[in-house]
Design a protein around this nucleic acid. Structure first.
Length: 382
DNA sequence: AATGAGACTTGGAAAAATTTTT
DNA sequence: AAAAATTTTTCCAAGTCTCATT
């Protein structure tokens, strides 16, 4: 024992420096601990505040990005724009002996290109993010703010070496300082990571309120799950939660082959069922119905498997999507939330149990039909 | 303002558990 | 009932952000 500490506001139970690596280690409280629960809730509340005042925050970032004469302010606002627009991480400074990964503020000249195609201009990002996951997105220059971003990037990159930082002198703490001061009254404690929570949750909300397949409480369960997973996938894509398919690694190569074979097998059995149905290989109507249900289910699963192949849905469900939004929707379609959240996640999100159905309506992702009379008195604020 | 250690969140992958197929 | 496929849980490294110190 080094010391015995009594601190009820602390999330760790023990900490020490590991001899071999020299790194600090912790024993943390469990996800279900009261303290962890309230921290988690706070995180999502913060993101909700950002959602409420995003218009103002966005305006301020863009205004400074476009108009500031102070080059450092301009740089900071440009970094914020990338975080807000593309859900980039902020990119803390790192030791040179750690893996060479970057975020918005640590981008280098080599990470951005400006391709043109059919007379259109694009900004192309290509770098390694957290855990060396490839981060590749391309943005079209097609609005006043993307034009501003384009001009700024060119300005900051002008005359610089391939490997020099674009936003030199800008650190993550400066970025966070800037964010904190945008609207401290309405969005207190705004930092870079809040944007990822906000964006992921918003993405899910939008997808659930307008899914490819319409679902309601009477829809079959597979369809409900499909819609939920697609929303989850969209969030995973915006957060860049890619699943490791590294073509250089023979192990993942093999995994890919296996995956493709599994797909083929599924396709086979779908065909089989289909021909069974066509051949009227059923004796009763109930049997026929069962066969058809099985077909629909298999088809959905296959589609899902194909579409989610390269993405890891777990991370966004665990860390980014406000569980209250998901639960409100699950209530709406009358799907038990235990079908979506595993036991571990149910434990983690135990704090949501405090919300009554009516309280959850506040997070309801379904746009309710607006009566015509009401629409007349709606004004456009901007 | 800059630095750096400490505290807490997020990440993919490995391992384990469970379900499905043969 | 074994094997294979899939899902869930665990693991711990890699991030972000805060706070104290200079």
């Amino acid at each position: 024992w080094k010391d015995i500490v009594h601190d009820h506001s602390s999330t760790w139970l023990a900490t020490w420096i590991e001899k071999i690596t020299g790194k600090r280690k912790y024993v943390w409280l469990h996800d279900s601990a009261v303290l962890r629960q309230s921290n988690d809730k706070e995180k999502y509340d913060k993101a909700k505040k950002l959602e409420k005042y995003i218009g103002k925050v966005q305006k301020q970032i863009i205004r400074i990005m476009l108009n500031s004469n102070n080059i450092n302010q301009k740089k900071i606002a440009t970094v914020c724009y990338l975080i807000f627009k593309l859900a980039m991480r902020v990119g803390d400074e790192k030791d040179p002996d750690e893996a060479d990964t970057v975020g918005a503020s640590t981008l280098r000249v080599e990470h951005i290109k400006f391709p043109e195609k059919d007379g259109k201009q694009f900004i192309e990002f290509n770098f390694l993010g957290k855990d060396s996951v490839p981060w590749q997105k391309t943005l079209e220059v097609n609005s006043q703010d993307t034009r501003g971003l384009y001009n700024n990037l060119k300005l900051f990159m002008n005359g610089k070496e391939h490997n020099s930082p674009i936003f030199d002198k800008i650190t993550s703490s400066k970025v966070n300082m800037f964010l904190r001061n945008i609207d401290p009254k309405n969005v207190p404690g705004l930092t870079a990571k809040v944007f990822r929570t906000y964006i992921a949750t918003k993405t899910v909300k939008e997808e659930l309120s307008d899914p490819k397949i319409r679902v309601d409480k009477n829809s079959p369960e597979v369809e409900k799950i499909y819609v939920m997973k697609m929303a989850n996938l969209k969030a995973a894509i915006t957060c860049n939660h890619k699943k490791g398919i590294d073509p250089k690694n023979p192990a993942s190569r093999k995994a890919l082959e296996k995956f493709e074979e599994a797909l083929r097998n599924k396709e086979e059995s779908i065909k089989r069922i289909r021909s069974d149905i066509a051949a009227k290989k059923w004796k009763t109507e109930i049997q026929k119905k069962r066969l058809e249900d099985r077909l629909v289910k298999l088809e959905m699963q296959l589609k899902l498997q194909k579409e989610t192949r390269d993405y890891n849905l777990g991370t966004s469900l665990r860390n980014y999507i406000d569980p209250r939004v998901m639960r409100a929707w699950l209530n709406y379609v009358q799907l038990d939330w235990r079908k979506i959240y595993t036991t571990t996640l149910q434990r983690k999100f135990k704090w949501v149990d405090d919300y009554s159905n009516s309280k959850l309506k506040e997070f309801y992702p379904i746009r309710e039909e607006t009566p015509l009379q009401e629409m007349k008195i709606v004004h456009n604020e901007s």
